[in-house]
Simulated scan of single mutants.
Amino acid sequence: MVMLRVNGGTFETETDPDTPLLYVLRNEMDLYGAKFGCGLGQCGSCTVLADGTPIFSCLTPISMLAEREITTLEGLGTIDNPGPVQRAFIEEQAAQCGYCIPGMIMRAHALLSHNATPDETAIRSALSPSLCRCGTHMRILRAVRRAAESFETQASVAEEETQ
């Protein structure tokens, strides 16, 4: 039995410990944000966060994640109350087919959680493992820059509160 911590809750599974996380998320937990794309860790559509770090859930066996906090797209916000990155992607209409968007959002969230004021190079580097074939790259970049403004504001408020 493997116990997983996902989006702030715990989940026990009898699944083979070598099973990739993606299959447990989608087939057992009904969390469909992470997509099956290539199954080889080359497209990024399956990206989730493990302790805040982006990972390819199609490649990562659940046995490696037992002590880590996993965050999926669903853990960032809801339809009624999207998280800052999700909101920015909606406002910038950054999705066309939408297949890459969950991975892009997860990578952007990880970047902005560690660096609320990334430069263009940092943004492009953080997103580079995720492929978008629709050509919405410029809207995706605008969405990340918009989300960065929100993260920067949150960081400023948090800093003022600690002083």
Rank of each mutant, 00 (worst) to 15 (best):
C100H: 01
E152N: 13
S113Y: 01
P20R: 08
T19W: 04
D16T: 03
E14P: 08
G135C: 10
L21Y: 06
T136L: 12
P17R: 04
G9A: 09
G44Y: 11
I90L: 11
Q96G: 00
C100M: 04
T136S: 15
S113Q: 11
L111S: 04
P84N: 00
M138P: 07
S130E: 09
A94D: 01
M138G: 12
D51M: 09
P61L: 04
I105F: 03
E69Y: 03
V6G: 00
H109Y: 11
C46R: 07
A34N: 09
T13S: 07
S45F: 13
E160V: 11
Q86V: 00
S45G: 13
E14A: 03
E12F: 03
A147Q: 13
G77A: 04
H114N: 15
R87N: 01
G135D: 12
T53L: 09
A155F: 13
F36M: 14
I55V: 06
I90V: 08
S57C: 09
V157L: 15
E160Q: 13
G135M: 10
Q96N: 01
D119W: 09
I140L: 12
C134L: 13
I101R: 00
A94V: 02
C132Q: 11
A95L: 06
Q86R: 00
C100Y: 05
C46F: 10
A143W: 14
M64K: 10
P102Y: 02
D80S: 12
L111V: 02
Q96C: 00
R146E: 15
A116Q: 08
P118Q: 07
L65P: 06
A143L: 12
D16N: 13
A147P: 12
E14Q: 09
E161Q: 13
D51K: 09
